[in-house]
Design a binder for these strands. Structure first.
Length: 562
RNA sequence: GCACCAUUAGCUCAGUUGGAUAGAGCAACGGAUUUCUAAUCCGUAGGUCAGAGGUUCGAGCCCUCUAUGGUGUACCA
């Protein structure tokens, strides 16, 4: 709870103004050994300013808190100023802060209505989403929900890969080998097969590469046959991927493929041509970035066609013109880091100062799968398999059949999403079925299960509730640990937000769940005396509210039965 | 060649931005259920934080070098 730290700081800097610049909320740490207290202020760095050894500094500071009701004890242990909260006062402060909504209002003020544009998921047309696409979708959606929760106005854009040489490949492949009948059956999967076939044949016949480039050029020049096919491929794919998005409850404000920026790209090319920072190199129009240690940013290929950098330049300019954002985020694989550095630097050189508000949020790859080789694990297949495993576990549960199906689907999805979000963004992930399909220990279903328990207790005991909670009844060790963990909510969300790191929330949820399950084991509610039950319910209402919000931010489905 | 990222328990990972005795989950072994859901809880065991220097009161975290793995490096996205 930052509020408590703030009040400590206020008192300290009141007595020792010299420490004003040295001490902040982040100066505090949580002692590893609980006997050392609940929060601690290391005084080592203050000793130079106050010209005293750390132990003497801590001793001086300790005197300030002599009669403070907020603390049970304040002690100086070898240079650390250790605070032990009064459990009753602490529970009251933390739980009331949540239950009266104060903590949420404070968090809303962080964004205070500023505008953020986020580009994520960004699937390729004619490629069925596989496990590799889940990361951008889920990390991006989670960052969106976090910003939204913190009071930002967020605009979500799905920058579909619907333009480029790959489309030349597809058009060529469909005209050469395609069948209308096959296309009708399962369009997306069929297009993908054609794509894989193209790459295989290309290995033996390099002339296919130039044929594909040629088809793309025709597409870009408005060739009716190319356009017609392109539009059909695109419509089919969007229809298909929307089903997957619905299943995991992801949506966008705009689907804007690269094709959307076609005219913008032409304007960009014109503008770059007449800019002093561009030049013609090996037949291509480029912005030279050698000075910044990067290869040039290509704006127009030597065959006259645009390239992805062109489209990204156009998209950024267009988005700024339309939304006037305060922040723009791109969520893609880490691999594209260089590309975005080039695009950002180029825009800066072209005089677009606002590009400093843009940020590339990269994440590690999923290893062990490859589209070109065709050994792909499709997202829908993973969700289906997960659902089946869950149904097997649920076979003896007394739940009506269609409801059971729905719940199993949500549990499976929760498992898949959680295992993805629980690791730091930058780490590569080796795809392993056994990991994705595990439901015990630190997993999505564990969180869902814990949440179900919380909700059930509140429902069952709800009727017994009356009167004011007595916070002195919430001071046993297990309860106290839970309240302490709850008190970290605000700072955890802020650090997830400033690092664009959903995994911070994922591991926080695990902490909350563990502390709650321990609490659950020891402290009963249903059937207890009114004052005890009522006070514990007050705690659980706060917990449910934190828990639900964290699950929502991570896109883990919320269920009330399992 | 150059650049970026990673390296912590048998496996998969945390580590509150430089603080006190490095923590979880899985796997292994032992235990808990007439109870608000056992997809849970408790315990045992497991470590040269890749290696070597450096910075300072203090380093898993910062700096330098090395090793290993991954990725990128001009007309694919």
């Amino acid at each position: 709870m930052n509020r408590i730290k703030d009040s400590i700081l206020e008192k300290i800097t009141g007595s020792f103004p010299a420490l004003r610049d040295l001490a902040s909320v982040s100066s505090f740490e949580v002692p590893r050994n609980p006997e050392h207290g609940d929060t601690a202020l290391p005084c080592f760095r203050f000793s130079a300013v106050l010209k005293k050894p750390p132990v003497a500094v801590a001793e001086e500071l300790k005197k300030i808190f002599r009669d403070d009701a907020l603390f049970e004890s304040v002690e100086n242990i070898s240079g650390y100023l250790n605070f032990k909260y009064s459990r009753k006062a602490f529970a009251e402060t933390v739980l009331s802060d949540i239950n009266d909504g104060s903590v949420y209002s404070r968090l809303k003020e962080i964004g205070s209505g500023r505008t953020m544009v986020i580009d994520y998921s960004s699937l390729n047309i004619a490629k069925e989403p596989h496990i590799g696409h889940l990361r951008s979708t889920i990390i991006g959606n989670s960052i969106y929900r976090l910003y939204d929760f913190l009071g930002w106005k967020v605009i979500r854009i799905n920058h579909l890969g619907d333009w480029g040489t790959q489309f030349g490949k597809l058009i060529y492949a469909f005209i050469s080998w395609g069948s209308e009948e096959e296309l009708g059956k399962n369009p997306v999967r069929y297009l993908q097969e054609l794509y894989v076939r193209f790459h295989k044949e290309e290995e033996n016949d390099p002339s296919l590469s130039s044929a594909a480039r040629d088809w793309f050029l025709r597409l870009e020049n408005g060739d009716p046959e190319a356009r017609k096919l392109w539009q059909r491929f695109k419509d089919y794919t969007i229809e298909g991927i929307k089903k997957t998005y619905d299943r995991i409850d992801v949506s966008f404000d705009f689907y804007r493929g690269e094709g959307y920026y076609e005219s913008g790209s032409k304007e960009v090319i014109k503008m770059v041509e007449s800019s002093p920072v561009s030049k013609i190199s090996e037949g291509a129009l480029v912005i030279d970035l050698e000075e910044y240690g990067m290869p040039p940013c290509i704006v127009r290929k030597s065959d006259g066609a645009s390239i992805y950098s062109t489209r990204d330049l156009a998209a950024a300019i267009d988005r700024h013109r339309e939304f006037g954002f305060d922040k723009m985020i791109y969520v893609t694989e880490l691999k594209q880091q260089l590309h975005f550095s080039q695009v950002f630097k180029s825009l800066e050189l072209l005089g677009y100062d606002w590009i400093k508000k843009a940020e590339h949020v990269g994440f590690g790859s999923i290893l062990g799968i490859s589209t070109r080789k065709g050994n792909v694990v499709y997202l829908e297949d993973i969700f289906d398999e997960a659902k089946n495993r869950v149904l097997e576990i649920m076979k003896d549960k007394d739940i009506e059949k269609t409801e059971k199906e729905t719940i199993a689907d949500k549990i499976g999805i929760g498992a898949v999403i959680f295992q993805d979000l629980s690791r730091s963004r930058v780490k590569n992930i080796e795809f392993e079925w056994e990991r994705v399909l595990s439901f015990e220990g630190e997993t999505g279903p564990y969180l869902q299960y814990s949440y179900v328990r919380i909700v059930h207790i509140i429902q069952k005991a709800g009727a017994e509730l009356n009167g004011q909670p007595d916070f002195s009844l919430l001071s046993d060790d297990v309860t106290y640990e839970l309240v302490k963990t709850m008190s970290y909510f605000e700072s955890k969300l802020i650090s997830a937000y400033s690092e664009h790191e959903p995994s911070v929330i994922a591991s926080y949820l695990i902490d909350l769940a563990k502390d709650f399950n321990r609490f659950y084991r020891v402290n009963r509610i249903v059937g207890e005396e009114n004052d005890v039950a009522g006070s514990r319910i007050f705690l659980l209402i706060a917990l449910e509210s934190l828990f639900r919000r964290c699950l929502q931010i991570l896109n883990i489905p919320i269920i009330d039965k399992m």
